[in-house]
Simulated assay, not measured.
Amino acid sequence: MVHRPDGPWDPGLQIERTTLAWLRTTLAFIIGLLVLLRMLGHVSALAALICAALALPLGLATGWLLWRRHLDGERRLRDRAPLPGGALPAAVSALAVLAGCSGLAFVIFA
């Protein structure tokens, strides 16, 4: 007979998979932005500095939100409370918009 955990979730799997997915998404955006900043730096140093000043702190904040969401999600699952809010998806969306604006700036200035 298969042992089922007490509750609707398997401890140790759902939260880790979600955290790893958010981590891959965040790292992909950060690496993409760094490559774009490198290319933009050859065209306009000022535009590259402005994009870097916005992108790098936002990337670090997203990583911090990711870790905080992971710990909060584990605690809430154990307490059978509602899962965390949407600060992390909002930060990743802002990072995506910034990546798009940086790409647009590269196309315009190039």
Results as ranks from 00 to 15, higher is better:
residue 2 V to C: 03
residue 3 H to C: 09
residue 9 W to K: 04
residue 10 D to M: 15
residue 10 D to W: 15
residue 12 G to L: 02
residue 13 L to N: 08
residue 13 L to Q: 13
residue 13 L to V: 15
residue 13 L to F: 15
residue 14 Q to K: 12
residue 14 Q to G: 15
residue 15 I to V: 15
residue 16 E to R: 14
residue 17 R to L: 14
residue 23 L to Q: 11
residue 23 L to A: 10
residue 23 L to T: 06
residue 24 R to C: 13
residue 24 R to H: 15
residue 25 T to L: 13
residue 27 L to D: 08
residue 29 F to V: 06
residue 30 I to T: 11
residue 31 I to L: 11
residue 31 I to Q: 10
residue 33 L to I: 08
residue 35 V to F: 15
residue 36 L to V: 02
residue 36 L to E: 03
residue 37 L to E: 02
residue 38 R to D: 09
residue 38 R to E: 06
residue 41 G to E: 01
residue 42 H to E: 05
residue 43 V to R: 07
residue 47 A to T: 03
residue 47 A to K: 08
residue 53 A to L: 13
residue 55 A to D: 02
residue 55 A to E: 00
residue 58 L to T: 00
residue 58 L to K: 00
residue 60 L to Y: 11
residue 61 A to R: 10
residue 63 G to T: 05
residue 63 G to K: 02
residue 66 L to Y: 03
residue 68 R to K: 10
residue 70 H to N: 12
residue 70 H to G: 12
residue 71 L to H: 12
residue 71 L to I: 05
residue 75 R to F: 09
residue 75 R to H: 03
residue 76 R to D: 04
residue 78 R to Q: 12
residue 79 D to I: 02
residue 79 D to E: 13
residue 79 D to P: 04
residue 80 R to F: 03
residue 82 P to K: 00
residue 84 P to D: 03
residue 84 P to S: 00
residue 86 G to S: 10
residue 86 G to W: 07
residue 87 A to R: 15
residue 87 A to P: 09
residue 88 L to I: 01
residue 89 P to N: 00
residue 94 A to Q: 02
residue 95 L to Q: 04
residue 95 L to D: 01
residue 96 A to C: 07
residue 100 G to L: 10
residue 101 C to P: 02
residue 104 L to M: 06
residue 105 A to Q: 01
residue 106 F to A: 03
residue 107 V to H: 07
